[in-house]
Amino acid sequence: MAAQSCSQFHVFSAEEIEFIAEDELIEIVPNMRMDQLNLIRGDFGPFLPQIATEVPLWLAVALKKRGKCRIRPPEWMSVEKLTQVLEAERDSEKEFQVLPFHYVEISRLLFDHAQDDIPDIYMVRSLMEDIRDVRFHKVETSLETFDGRTSAVQIRSLSAMEVNIVRPFVARALQAFQKLGNMVPETDSVPSTRPQGTDKAARGRRILRGR
């Protein structure tokens, strides 16, 4: 049973999330000549030397691996933009800054396959890591505020990878709260005067009041 409910929350693997992100569009500058590609996903190209064109990320990476193009990192991946985002993340306690839904995966793919195309890569990389840490810290602190009354939790601007990482824990926690909440009424008639100062008792009472 435990194993079953566990797998039920691990919906997507990290690879699958990356797969989804690989369909995001990105600009490349080819250094070769190639006709238009009529893919199922749409038409891309024609590819001409030094003429920038937009393609899905997977296509960009495939061409890059063969040395056929340069990838232009998206605008938000510049030192300047990321510094702004990082500062804003640090300043606001609760809010998350708006970054592309797949920022973790996109940046990871570019770091892996297109290092030489990213200006100031060390800066960018460390900024990305800082942003990720700050955001995760925020996620963690906001998790502490959950209680049994929550029948739904709303989050803004969390990215795909972040959702996927917290999902198993959050979904299980919320479900457990709900289960416990349902059990409480049986002891309802007994006024909770027992002076137990434990966290759990306090939480239980809060659920009761929430009714």
């Binding site: 049994g148 009354r149 929550t150 029948s151 739904a152 939790v153 709303q154 989050i155 803004r156 601007s157 969390l158 959702v163 709900q178 909440g181 349902n182 409480v184 009424p185 659920i207 929430g210 009714r211």
Partner: peptide, 15 residues
């Protein structure tokens, strides 16, 4: 038991 908090979502919001 769970109190259904009034909830609304703008496009792009996650829950």
């Amino acid at each position: 038991l769970a109190m259904d908090l009034p909830l609304e979502m703008e496009p792009g919001d996650l829950s």
